[in-house]
Design a protein around this nucleic acid. Sequence first.
DNA 1: AAGAATTACTTTACGCTTCAACTATACATC
DNA 2: GATGTATAGTTGAAGCGTAAAGTAATTCTT
Lengths: 175, 175
Amino acid sequence: MSANEEPRWLSQQEREMWMRLVGVTFLMPGVLESQLKRDAGLSFFEYHVLAMLSEADNHTRLMSDLARWSNSSLSRLSHVVTRLEKQGWVRREACPNDGRATNAVLTEAGLAHLAKQAPAHVEEVRKQVFDVLEPAQVAAMSEALGRVLAQLDPGNLAAPNGSCLAAPEQIIDKD
Amino acid sequence: MSANEEPRWLSQQEREMWMRLVGVTFLMPGVLESQLKRDAGLSFFEYHVLAMLSEADNHTRLMSDLARWSNSSLSRLSHVVTRLEKQGWVRREACPNDGRATNAVLTEAGLAHLAKQAPAHVEEVRKQVFDVLEPAQVAAMSEALGRVLAQLDPGNLAAPNGSCLAAPEQIIDKD
DNA sequence: AAGAATTACTTTACGCTTCAACTATACATC
DNA sequence: GATGTATAGTTGAAGCGTAAAGTAATTCTT
């Protein structure tokens, strides 16, 4: 936008959608986190990380790939994995191919804990999001959100090709 | 869900939408915040709060209403308003009708700062969200997000009726 | 009128994330 | 082989938000 152009203010319809998107963005993590904290002692992000490890080959992923796929910084992930290590749910392993790289591995205890919590969590996700949407709305949301996500994080569309990463397995039909 | 029922796992289509929604939820605030922090020294939430005050009659709102409408806790808002006070962009006033209540008021400096930052911010919002969506997608997203938001925060649909609140003015066509 | 319950914040302490600096390893250039 | 640059994390300090406690005012009940 050049200095002389009029800003492209949002229309009334765009503003309404914007306020709702911001509202969902602010509220959703906290609402889902309430149930997870109470039942599992996990934050929403921690659950998300454990779920991603559960879907990986050998329940193992490079830290850099895990950070990218969970939409977080390496620093944030490093701190979170440190906490999950202390709980015994994740462990760190050096990467045999690259001395700089570290793998995060979901432990047996972590997998058991995740499996135990998944039913209640998916029920809460269904209650808060999917039960209020028609199937056509889910499809439309998915298409539109895909476009927004591609803009927000262009680099994440590519399949990860970091070392120490097997091709992802077919994902278990859980949240 | 009774103890004996099978959990309602997400379908493949639902999972795809879910991962995208979570991705946008995690990434969007930070991406928009980068531009705001750099240009204005404001977090995304701080900007949101100033924008809401700018739209209020006399640029004044009850703290409790402002918290509700900005989807935050009173405690969070109290801390944020304290910081904005220190910057000279907001001030607190006791409510004449209710001794317990506090009004947040946008100062002249705050209004000027917001007006200065609004063009760049709306451009960033347009770039990250609206430029990648078709008008029909904006309408569909708005409808679907409205349903999800109603579920996440049922009480917020009602018009606020706290004391010290005039009916909101027609909102200026800004982000 | 007095006391109990509720409401509207504010404040403190703690946990989590970000920022910036650091360490170690791999790769490119000479 | 040596040096510089880039990469992959880790770590500590500071900032921000949550939980819980506190203060003050209002409303309700007796």
